[in-house]
């Protein structure tokens, strides 16, 4: 198991190095100007991509375990949407303060993500797990509500704020270079700490696969676990959204593929998702900025991978009696 994680970490390091180099420049003829460019622009961007990918993938893995449904994902469930609505509301209301490297935008995104999660839990929960239909429909409704809030806030804004807000809708890492470095560092640190904290609940997440009552009867503090995981996930989603906007499907694809590779045990799945999500988004963002002559929002790439993947999952799940 430690070997698996070392392999994942090495892969991440390699991916980050290679992707930092890639960008229509010849890596073999580095001059100082390009070296500066790498340090100032591309390295922070790759670091943000890694942090956001790790956060979203870990959230996806945790949501899936918590809701006992393999289709849960912060984007599909409307949690990212809640975070984006919070972020846009902060722009509209001109909330602007810094709090240990966290902007008012991040705090507001956290509030939005947490609100979305609480709504989701209130409406989408059945007695034994969460049915796929209810879950996805609740996510659709939440996303619609948050889009309406975002549109409302944007129609009340002046032009400069609109263009700022618009960037959060895109799910792009392009604006990442606008962030101050303390903000980037704070984001990366929060993601690392939260993901490590998730591990403390990994064993209980395993027990939850047997149902909440059985998990409690096997010694898990179910309510405490749920509360802690919800807060951690809302925080992770908020950091991801405030750094890069709502990027979809990372939390769906990555844990799914990793469950096939490392198995469903959350004690190994969560750290694997941390590295796997980081690798996935770093690669996706590198493709987004180097595939075409103009840069694509990375959300386009992940949605183009993730959308068909979700459809395929729905189709294959439909054939199983348990869904």
């Amino acid at each position: 198991m430690i070997i698996t994680l070392v392999v994942f970490a090495a892969l991440l390091a390699a991916t980050m190095t290679v992707c930092t180099m890639i960008c229509s420049v010849n890596v073999f003829s580095l001059n100082t100007e390009i070296a500066d460019d790498i340090l100032d622009i591309r390295l922070p961007r790759v670091a943000i991509a890694a942090a956001v990918g790790a956060a979203l993938a870990c959230c996806g893995a945790v949501f899936q375990g918590l809701l006992r449904n393999p289709l849960a994902d912060p984007f599909i469930l409307g949690v990212s949407g809640g975070g984006a609505a919070g972020a846009v509301a902060a722009i509209a209301l001109g909330i602007d303060f810094a709090f240990f490297g966290f902007s008012g935008l991040t705090v507001s995104a956290f509030a939005g993500a947490l609100a979305a999660l609480l709504l989701l839990l209130a409406f989408a929960r059945g007695r034994s797990g969460t049915s796929t239909h209810t879950l996805i429909l609740t996510g659709v409704v939440l996303n619609a509500i948050f889009s309406a809030i975002i549109l409302f806030a944007m129609s009340m804004m002046n032009n400069q704020n609109v263009s700022e807000a618009y960037r959060w809708m895109m799910g792009s890492l392009k604006q990442a270079i606008d962030h101050d470095s303390p903000q980037i560092v704070a984001g990366c640190v929060v993601v690392a700490i939260c993901c490590a904290a998730l591990l403390a609940f990994a064993r209980n997440l395993n027990l939850l696969a047997l149902g909440e009552e059985t998990a409690a009867q096997m010694g898990a503090g179910v309510e405490r676990t749920k509360l802690a995981l919800l807060i951690l996930c809302a925080l992770l989603t908020a950091v991801a959204v405030s750094l890069a906007g709502p990027i979809g499907f990372v939390g769906l694809i990555v844990p799914h593929i990793l469950r096939i590779i490392v198995g469903p045990d959350h004690r190994i799945l969560i750290p694997s998702a941390f590295f796997g999500g980081a690798i996935f988004l770093v690669v996706a963002d590198t493709l987004a900025r180097s595939l075409f002559y103009t840069e694509l929002p990375v959300g386009v790439i992940t949605a183009l991978c993730g959308g068909p993947f979700l459809l395929w999952l729905l189709k294959s799940r439909a054939r199983q009696a348990s869904f």
């Binding site: 375990g65 696969a209 047997l210």
Partner: peptide
Amino acid sequence: NRELARAVSVVPQDTGVMFA
């Protein structure tokens, strides 16, 4: 819950398990 789970084990009616 932990202390109780060391004294009492339960075989429930619903034995469904999520994930492989």
